[in-house]
Design a protein around this nucleic acid. Structure first.
Lengths: 314, 314
DNA sequence: TCGTTTGAATAATTTAAATTTATGGAGACT
DNA sequence: AGTCTCCATAAATTTAAATTATTCAAACGA
């Protein structure tokens, strides 16, 4: 090892002696014996080829070189203390950054509440939310750019077993109609009724759209026969379109809570068809888990998790 | 020893890994084996209770805590480097301060030339000249406030054997007369002639005055009979007084070189009377000798020392 | 002036820590 | 799959640092 001319311990000893004016007192202060102090200072003096203390008189006095060294010594030790504090803060969740990934839906309607709760509990941890596609989110988790993420779609196969995927909650989707739509009076629609509707749907690339299409297909519907009036890439835009009577859509119920309350949108029920998907928490088990990430997982997520979610069992 | 959470070596390793992106390369860079690096980082992580590196992928990536620590790490190591440089500079006489003591006479007429030479040789060492009485200078050397001093008088007895006193040079004193004084024509004065003169002398507290008085007394003169026109505490003031014809004085020849050349002052010779004193270098052998002080003693003083001085024999 | 005390240096031993050699395992590139 | 690279681990060696005990020197009090 190509050596450094001194060690932090030596600097600490130097500082103590300078402060106490005595080798012995410094030794007591540092809970070591006096020879230990003497030897370390001797080593230091040998290494630097200087004399640090004038041992002549009643108390140990700094030489010019000693004073010079002490100045740097203080600065260095201060930096060390600061570093320790910063690390401690990080450990105790004061400071640090948590990066969360989410898809459109969860990012827009779920995350804000969860992040709000988190920030309330850990006000010194800053949180960053990245809304991307399920695919991109998955990759970000895989290579550590995102600490954890909640997704509502299917991961690419290769990521599926690289990441830890924990069922988290059920995202209920609903068919929504304009408030004054003729069919909004019926208690329950039939699947066939869907063919009579004009749809304002998410663009075909979106995860939610894919999920909905799959569900409908699985329930025996021919999605080609559905009339799609227009495709938009924003849930908010779709909500507005539906409210304006432009058509129907499948939307997450979490995204239309306010509209249902005010009655500007109508939520329909369909016989023998439940449109829902599993939201999943994904993390990268082979990567370092930050304390903030851990705290989020343990203390925040369970409060929003469905009863069946493993997160509840912790 | 109440421990610090990390060592400088660990920080050096951390920095190297961060820079190289690999434990192995860092090990090579630091001329150690790879396990040494691994273990040190493990110790560091254990101590700080954090994970510093993500060892998952192809290269070692810093975690958030790692990045935080690295920042401090860089700052600390930079300070260390700076400290080393400063000490090196001090060792090689680039930087540092030399504090020299002197009495009026040497301080005014000798030191400027010596210091000039010193500064020429060691331009990076700043020099401080303190002109005080012999007594005070002696004490300052004793307690380390002054590195070395040149005095022309007698030290208090207790300091005499505490300090190292080296004969350095002879300070020739001369009786000086106004240029147009009647006695300035005579080739050589007699001791008795002194009684005919009016003197402008140094004040009776000054070392030079005491030395002169003692010499005159030793040569059989009755100094009470000498007519002292006035006492001044500045050599320059006395020179001006003499030039103005106010009286005679005993002055160091080094202080009147210019006046002799221009003929504005006359230097008289006195039969059977040589007025001179020994200038002595004093240092404190029991104290740390700075490099600058050593250089001054070895390289500057000899050039101004008398042939008999021990300083010449080095 | 002489003990007496206090603080620092030294020596020898013990203890602890860091480094090395050797080896095992996991991921990456061909 | 096979090889290569890189990191972790284990055991042994070496190196360094701490401790106890002692000596030495300077300061202080009587």
């Amino acid at each position: 090892m190509p050596e450094l001319p001194f060690t932090l311990d030596q600097l600490r000893i130097l500082k103590a002696i300078a402060a106490q004016g005595s080798f012995k007192k410094a030794a007591d202060l540092l809970y070591v014996t006096q020879p230990a102090v003497s030897l370390q200072i001797q080593n230091l003096e040998k290494q630097l080829e200087i004399t640090i203390f004038d041992r002549g008189g009643r108390k140990a006095l700094l030489t010019e070189a000693g004073r010079l060294l002490l100045e740097y010594c203080e600065r260095i030790l201060n930096q060390c203390d600061e570093a320790c504090k910063a690390i401690e803060d990080l450990n105790s969740l004061k400071g640090g950054t948590l990066i969360i990934g989410a898809s459109q839906t969860t990012g827009t309607y779920l995350m804000p509440r969860m992040i709000g709760l988190f920030r309330q509990k850990y006000p010194d941890v800053s949180v960053q939310l990245q809304v991307h596609s399920t695919r991109r989110t998955g990759w970000s988790v895989a290579n550590g750019q995102i600490d954890l993420a909640i997704i509502g779609g299917q991961l690419p196969g290769d990521l599926e077993n690289l990441l830890q995927v924990i069922p988290y909650a059920t995202d209920q989707l609903a068919l929504v109609l304009p408030a004054k739509h003729p069919l909004s009076n019926k208690k329950e629609l039939l699947k066939e009724d869907l063919y009579k509707l004009n749809f304002v749907s998410l663009d075909s690339q979106s995860t939610t759209r894919k999920v909905v299409d799959k569900l409908l297909r699985d329930s025996g519907l021919d999605i080609q026969r559905l009339k799609i009036e227009m495709e938009l890439n924003s849930l908010e835009a779709i909500k507005n379109a539906v409210q304006s009577g432009l058509g129907a859509s499948f939307l997450p119920v979490v995204s239309i809570e306010r509209e249902l309350e005010s009655g500007t949108i109508h939520k329909a029920c369909i016989a023998d068809l439940e449109v829902k998907r599993e939201l999943k928490l994904i993390t990268n088990p082979s990567r370092y888990t930050s304390r903030a990430s851990d705290a989020f997982k343990k203390n925040i997520l369970p409060q929003f998790a469905s009863l069946e979610s493993p997160l509840r069992q912790i």
